[in-house]
Design a protein around this nucleic acid. Structure first.
Length: 491
RNA sequence: GGCCCCAUGGUCAAGUGGUUAAGACGCUGCCCUCUCAAGGCGGAGUCAGGGGUUCAAUUCCCCUUGGGGCUACCA
């Protein structure tokens, strides 16, 4: 029996939840679900300045929205809690004392200025800037002197010299680092809070994490962490560093590349399943040629073996294409719900509507279903239903009404529509048929002038859809207005 | 600067010591259609460059170039 897989997602609550973080979470989640393992959600809030509870809530809400749940961690609890690093300070302290007592760590009283000077000196010699161990062997007298000055020490880890550190990485294979390239690094800040590289090791070890799957930016930090695993006698997990998500210009995704946070996509009305589907395909490829996956299919198909090493550019076009599938799959009610906030924001509804008005709004919104990639596009698509006053989109459109057959077509249209029992799709269709038959004109000569007169536009939804929704009165009013504007007189 | 990672079309990518080098997005042509979208059927477009190894290299090795990450009392 294989050991149960325990993976974790350990975000820092320091800002909007980044789409890259969502992908890291997703890979962990998929692996856990695939193998019947556990996903632990831990909050790494040791950066007191930037961490906020609000941001933590935001991350949790985003994970839930995307459909990811966790088996242990903040909110749900578990055997190895607490799951917020600032609530685990006692634990870290214990290990720090151990390291100090064993001579594997030491207090450092260096000031920022001293550190900076050393850095500059190293850079000048074109060496890797690192702490050279100035405070390694402080005498009790020196320490007393520093303490008297009121200097607050940090704790530094004593990096062993001349050691090769080999990381067995699931996606990259063996990666070798030389310990001589790493200076004695800070594990506890002067305010007593552990640094990331230190806390992460203790937490992953204590929480019995078996696989650490995280973004590639952490790869270079991993040797430091390995050193700590060894110093503390912890068993190391399997690492898997997945590549970064890049913007169109091949640099790390940032604000200038457009929407980068999960929340922004939620507000734009993307489907969580669409985002998950898209993210899964960034840096991972299935065995098959399948592109659209349900969550269950994703879990079945997922494997770390097929995770790509190279960074992936975030392709908004593809996200839109995938999301379009999901928008269409929404049932009418869900689609309307998705449209609602967008419609309200556009000023096309208040959200208070009921009865006929609400029913009409629903029908209008649903006409856009096949035409949008995400909900924020809906208002634009249905805008024509809300404005009876409009201009011709261009000269070409206006010219359509100058065709000599236009008066004939329009006269017939008025006559026929007026006779309809009900202005519905069937009736309208029949009307067009009759006009075509009688006038012996091609479809284009009949439809296009009416379309332009009705919407000012040469493109749009089917007329048999538009006319019933506008109703007889508005239809006639619009057409008459347009004809007048175009200077067309009817016999 | 040093260390580390990466390199198949514009993008996501499959793939192998011998292949006509998949598929998808995007682009584009045709069909459908009043139009747009969707859909169907086609098309263009790739192994970064240079050296090796080998009968044979996109595949293995080295270098160059390019991109990225780390080098914090951020994570």
């Amino acid at each position: 029996m294989e050991k149960e897989i325990r993976v974790r997602f350990a975000p820092s609550p320091t800002g909007p939840f980044h789409i890259g973080g969502a992908r890291s979470a997703l890979f962990n989640w998929l692996l856990a679900r695939k193998t019947g393992g556990k996903l632990i959600l831990r909050i790494e809030d040791t950066d007191l300045e930037r961490s906020s509870r609000e941001s933590e809530e935001n991350i949790k809400a985003a994970l839930k929205w995307l459909g990811m749940d966790w088996d242990e961690g903040v909110d749900v609890g578990g055997e190895y809690g607490p799951y917020r690093q600032t609530e685990r300070l006692d634990l870290y302290r214990k290990y720090t004392e151990q390291l100090l007592a064993e001579g594997k760590a030491y207090y450092c009283y260096c000031t920022d200025d001293e550190l900076e000077a050393e850095r500059q000196a190293l850079v000048a010699q074109s060496q890797m800037p690192r702490y050279m161990g100035k405070c390694r062997n402080l005498t009790p007298e020196q320490i007393a002197e520093f303490e008297k000055e009121g200097r607050k020490p940090t704790v530094r880890f004593k990096v062993p010299a001349g050691q090769q550190i080999v990381i067995h990485d699931m996606v990259r294979g063996d990666v070798v680092f030389d310990s001589d390239g790493i200076g004695d690094f800070v594990i506890v800040k002067s305010d007593g809070i552990p640094t990331y590289n230190y806390a992460v090791v203790i937490d992953d070890a204590l929480m019995h994490i078996t696989h650490v799957i995280r973004a590639e930016e952490h790869l270079s930090n991993t040797p430091r962490q390995c050193l700590i695993y060894d110093a503390l006698g912890f068993e190391k997990p399997v690492f898997g560093h997945i590549s970064l998500i890049l913007g169109k210009d091949r640099t790390k995704m940032s604000k200038r590349h457009g929407a980068t946070s999960v929340d922004q996509y939620r507000k734009l009305g993307y489907c969580p399943k669409g985002i998950v589907n898209f993210l899964a395909l960034l840096g991972w490829a299935p065995n098959s040629e399948q592109e659209i996956f349900t969550t269950e299919e994703l879990i079945q198909a997922f494997s770390m073996d097929h995770v790509a090493k190279n960074p992936a550019v975030f392709d908004l076009d593809k996200l839109n294409w995938i999301n379009q599938h999901y928008m269409r799959q929404l049932d009418d009610e869900a689609f309307f719900e998705a449209a609602k906030p967008q419609m309200i924001e556009a000023g096309f509804m208040t959200g208070e509507e009921e009865g006929d008005k609400l029913a009409w709004l629903k029908k209008v919104v649903l006409t856009s279903k096949e035409h949008v990639s995400y909900a924020a596009q809906i208002p634009e698509v249905v805008a024509m239903y809300f404005h009876d006053d409009f201009a011709f989109e261009n000269e070409e459109a206006a010219a359509v009404l100058k065709e000599e057959t236009v008066p004939t077509v329009m006269n017939m249209l008025f006559e026929q529509l007026g006779q309809l029992e009900a202005v519905d799709a069937t009736g309208v269709k029949a009307t067009f048929k009759t006009i075509q038959k009688t006038t012996k004109l091609g479809g284009k000569s009949v439809y296009m002038p009416i379309r332009v007169a009705l919407t000012g536009n040469q493109h749009g939804p089917e007329l048999t859809e538009i006319i019933p929704l506008l109703g007889l009165e508005r239809t006639l009013k619009r057409i008459k207005g347009s004809l007048e504007k175009a200077g067309v007189t009817l016999a």
